[in-house]
């Protein structure tokens, strides 16, 4: 079957199987920043935004995304740059496999709740697991990003 998606502002049409998940369709079509981690919504690595809301693309059927707006990190590069700078400053980078998904989730949080407290940041991001950093430096970086009005 065919579906029409708007990915990072660009209209795309893909030929898909009815049981294909959004993650697989995106990777097949070279949106390589979207990655597989756990297969069962437990890790957050496959996060993309659908209509600006973070969702686990490993478990969303592509067929249900007809005419939806999909955002990957490539679609919000300016914001990601800003966040990445704070990650660098605070030593919050490690392997980075999850970083694009984390950036998208943080961006969605900013859209929903710019004045989020650190507790709200943790709650919003609890579905984004990280095995490298111990999380603390990430929280410091995210708080700085949210406070950055530039």
């Amino acid at each position: 079957m065919k579906i029409n998606l708007k990915i990072n502002g660009q209209s795309r049409q893909f030929l898909i199987e009815p049981n294909e998940y959004l993650l697989d369709v995106l990777r097949k079509n070279d949106y390589l920043s979207v990655r597989r981690g756990c297969d069962n919504t437990s890790c957050g690595v496959c996060t993309v935004l659908i209509d600006n809301k973070p969702v686990p693309s490993c478990s969303v059927l592509a067929a249900r995304c007809e005419n939806k707006e999909i955002t990957t990190v490539e679609g919000v590069e300016k914001e990601v740059e800003k966040l990445a700078r704070y990650f660098g400053e605070l030593g919050a980078d490690q392997c980075g496999y999850c970083n694009p998904s984390m950036a998208l989730t943080v961006y969605a949080l900013k859209l929903e709740n710019k004045n989020a407290s650190i507790e709200e940041v943790k709650e919003y991001l609890v579905g984004n697991l990280c095995r490298c950093t111990g999380y603390i430096a990430q929280h410091e970086a995210i708080m700085k990003y949210l406070g950055d009005e530039s």
């Binding site: 920043s33 990190v73 740059e81 990445a84 970083n99 694009p100 950036a103």
Partner: peptide, 8 residues
């Protein structure tokens, strides 16, 4: 490399 990695 953090910047490029986060940019995907």
């Amino acid at each position: 490399d953090g910047m490029g990695i986060m940019k995907g």
